[in-house]
Write a protein that binds this DNA or RNA. Structure first.
Lengths: 147, 147
DNA sequence: CTCAGTGCAAAGGGTTTGCAGCCTA
DNA sequence: TAGGCTGCAAACCCTTTGCACTGAG
């Protein structure tokens, strides 16, 4: 169900050519580096990581590329209300949601079939066509409850 | 279950005095104007509305007061990923969630007991203590589907 | 008289945009 | 050669902060 790097690379090049855009060394580097991340990253964080690999890379290039990756369906934007957008790989077809610790920022991805079903029910009730959804639970993780 | 303006005024003055803060004409005006709004407003929008009533009112005062109202439990911050925070009256004890049209911005508030239950289940599963949650469904409303 | 509250303007963070030069098809 | 791509810096938007002044208790 998850896609490997080669697949993603193919998806991105396909998207780019559809848009009359090109694959470049920067875009490739950003794609690879983004996919390697274990945690959701902000564009800013990704930029910092990338600068260590290629110090000449520009701020704007990272932001622009993350927008492209989002449009291509490779990245997904997350908003935890921190004032900046986080990105996660959008490789799984099933949508998962997030449980965020408001103290330490740790976050868990979870999947709940029933929630997905209920969401569809709501959307149908109002005659909407579902495009996307975001469910964030904010809480205090076990560690922080003890500390 | 919903609170009237007098109640809210009382809640706010109580909160203020607890914090050794004072009720002022500006704070009162902002509170009243905020409560009158039918739709979720950003601080910026509220500022624009307030300027028509009192042109001398300051940007910062609105932002500062909205923070106070949030802390007092009167306003609730919403984040639809637009880059700015929206506020809604937090008068109902039950949490409601939002269904937002991505085309026209129309949004519906809905309440679903089962979703609330499921959220508690998730939180318990991971040993978290629930603090808050936000569920936003993004879709296309019936009107925009036709148009 | 004290100290919170205010408006203003400047600063701040995250993100986008304008632009000249570069590079690739 | 044309047009996309880049890095840089400036611009932008939303929000917060510093500051001197005002005003209520």
């Amino acid at each position: 169900m998850t896609l490997n790097q080669k697949d993603i690379y193919g998806i991105f090049t396909k998207y780019l050519s559809e848009q009359n855009l090109r694959m470049t060394t920067q875009r490739e580097l950003i794609l690879k580096t983004f996919c390697k991340q274990k945690k959701h990253v902000t564009a800013e964080q990704l930029y910092e990581i990338l600068k260590k690999i290629d110090p000449t890379i520009g701020h704007a290039t990272v932001y622009r590329t993350m927008k492209l990756l989002t449009e291509a369906g490779i990245a997904r934007e997350l908003n935890f209300g921190e004032g900046s957008v986080r990105y996660e790989p959008d490789t799984a077809k099933e949508h998962h949601d997030h449980l965020v610790c408001v103290k330490c920022g740790e976050n868990i991805e979870f999947l709940d079939e029933e929630i997905e079903t209920l969401q569809n029910r709501i959307v149908n009730k109002y005659g909407y066509k579902l495009v996307d959804h975001s469910l964030n639970l904010y809480g205090i993780c076990p560690k922080c409850q003890k500390g």
